[in-house]
Simulated assay, not measured.
Amino acid sequence: MNDGVELTRNPYPSPVASVKMHEVIYWSDGLRVKGLLAEPAEEGIYDAFLYLRGGIKGVGMVRPSRIAQFAQQGFVVFAPYYRGNRGGEGNEDFAGEDRHDVFSAAAYLRDHPSVNGRLHIFGFSRGGVMALQAAVELEHVTSLVTWGGVSDMELTYDERKDMRRMMKRVIGGSPKTQPESYKWRTPLYDAERIQCPVLIIHGVLDTNVTFEHALRLENRLKELGKHCETWYYEHFDHNFPPLENLGVVRKLTTWMKQQKGVNGHGDAS
């Protein structure tokens, strides 16, 4: 049972003719988990794009129209649902053991016949912390983008009173009773292991994931001398207006394609 090995692939309705989609079941840490694959319909060799959703369970689930946006920009996109979702085995964690579903998804993308070896990681909201965990753990990452992303799990607990019951249940307690569990889920403590360029996108008015998350990540990366770029939007909150959203998608995918990784050849080897 090799992580990232595809078990089944079934056609999935695509919202646009220029993108083909499949729902994939793949191995992750001994579990059969699921994700959505979006590829340009035109045959070719493309950069890989690992899309990490926000939310938990049905909240923030992968949207075909969203990942199609990125595939239309010339990427092979794979978006894991995380374990325990839509028929996948196991129980979803919250940036805990389900990080292995992300690592396995990266392995799946690397073996895709239409991928050229360049891997970009994108995380939105809760997916931001998952993206950072992946950049800490994985080699050969070309770039990382976190958009409205969580960077500090204890800060999330402090700020989101509506999520505390869920976090206590999933993580096993509060930051006071389970400090090591929250620290383990907070990649700021391991940020020295991030080798790829990082782009932080955040709306200053965000109340779902406050701007403080972006500032803490920016400060930590700069403290460590990492390659970090920031796009902050003073008048936007967690979800950008549609036209501005599309403009940022085009801008960030252009940024990704311009990145050279660590060694100038697109990866961190």
Score class of each variant (00 low, 15 high):
G4Y: 08
N10F: 01
P11K: 00
Y12Q: 07
P15W: 02
S18I: 05
I25P: 04
Y26D: 02
Y26A: 01
S28H: 10
D29E: 11
G30A: 08
L37G: 00
G44D: 13
F49H: 09
L50W: 02
L52A: 04
G54N: 12
G54W: 06
G55I: 10
V62H: 02
V62G: 03
P64M: 09
F75R: 02
V76I: 10
N85M: 09
R86Q: 06
G88T: 04
D98S: 13
H100W: 13
F103N: 09
S104Y: 05
S104L: 07
A107V: 08
Y108R: 06
S114P: 07
R118Y: 12
F122E: 04
M130A: 12
A131Y: 00
Q133K: 13
A134H: 09
E137R: 07
E137G: 02
L138P: 00
L138M: 08
H140V: 06
V141I: 13
L144Y: 04
W147I: 08
W147F: 13
G148N: 02
G149V: 01
G149E: 03
G149C: 06
S151K: 03
S151T: 15
D152F: 06
M153C: 11
M153P: 01
E154D: 13
T156I: 15
D158M: 10
I171F: 03
I171E: 02
G172I: 06
P175F: 13
Q178V: 15
S181F: 01
W184P: 04
R185F: 13
T186S: 08
Y189T: 15
I194R: 02
Q195C: 15
P197D: 07
P197G: 12
V198L: 11
N208D: 08
V209A: 11
V209T: 14
T210L: 07
E212A: 14
H213M: 09
L215M: 15
L221A: 09
K226V: 10
Y233H: 07
E234D: 12
F236H: 10
D237H: 11
N239A: 11
N245S: 15
G247P: 08
V249H: 07
R250D: 13
T253E: 04
M256W: 06
Q259R: 14
N263H: 14
A268D: 15
S269Y: 12
